[in-house]
Nucleic acid binder design. Structure first.
Lengths: 123, 123
DNA sequence: CCAATAGTTCAATAATCATTGAACATAAGG
DNA sequence: CCTTATGTTCAATGATTATTGAACTATTGG
């Protein structure tokens, strides 16, 4: 198992791959959740998405999101912390990520997105 | 053959379907070309895209673009004239289409897009 | 060392997708 | 009417895709 998964450089990020990645409802939900977290800590663990499906399926989608350059994974012990590659994407495709997030937010209900109203996790 | 193909209503347009449609290089090229034509006549015939592949394959992609609500087809004699559903998309997902077009323009070379510098068709 | 936790990888499945050429439908023009 | 031009539909193909559960890896904590 590689310590830190491979990510494309900023310049290697390709538009069709990004759009394809965002076209899957589960991946869109992941990105949306990460975008909401940006206001707070900007990072989430894989486990925080368990509501979206089985672990192995999520790992598959995480890999896709990494490969296309949408998010970055940082390994810390037995956890993986992931965040949006906001700056890279904004430089590469200005306005795109925001437009997608806003569009998703407009359809939050239809897309069954978790509305993160200043998420306070029970502990 | 149906006279005028079915199109979804504005409200029926769904984000994942739109993104998936735009994630295919050929369809992205079609949309890009239609967007450039907006400055001029706003409509193009199917045949104007012959550079992008075989006729039957293009018909397949046209159908996808229609079904997801990205474009509209108007039948006129033996021709089909198509245009972007710009207004519907801008109302439904503000800023999304523009962001995608601009992103595509930035990568025009990489995406092998036809750069329409005030296209003057030979006749 | 052992057990529990967090994720990934693998193999198998069913479903969808893009592409092709041939056949078809429709309308225009001689 | 016959031919030509413009697109669509159909059937077949090979390639991806999402999903699942089981096996595996690695780290933490007792």
């Amino acid at each position: 198992m590689s310590r830190t998964p491979l990510h494309p450089t900023r310049e290697q990020i390709e538009l069709p791959m990004v759009l394809d990645c965002l076209s899957d409802p589960i991946r869109l939900a992941i990105v949306y959740q990460l975008a909401q977290q940006e206001r707070v800590s900007s990072e989430l663990r894989c486990g925080d998405f368990s509501g979206l499906g089985a672990k192995s399926n999520l790992a598959y989608h995480f890999a896709k999101l990494r490969e296309c350059g949408l998010m970055q994974t940082r390994v810390a012990g037995t956890n993986r912390f992931m965040r949006l590659r906001r700056e890279d994407l904004d430089v590469r495709f200005p306005g795109l990520l925001d437009a997608v997030i806003k569009s998703a937010a407009k359809d939050a209900e239809r897309l069954q997105l978790v509305v993160g109203c200043d998420v306070v996790e029970a502990d």
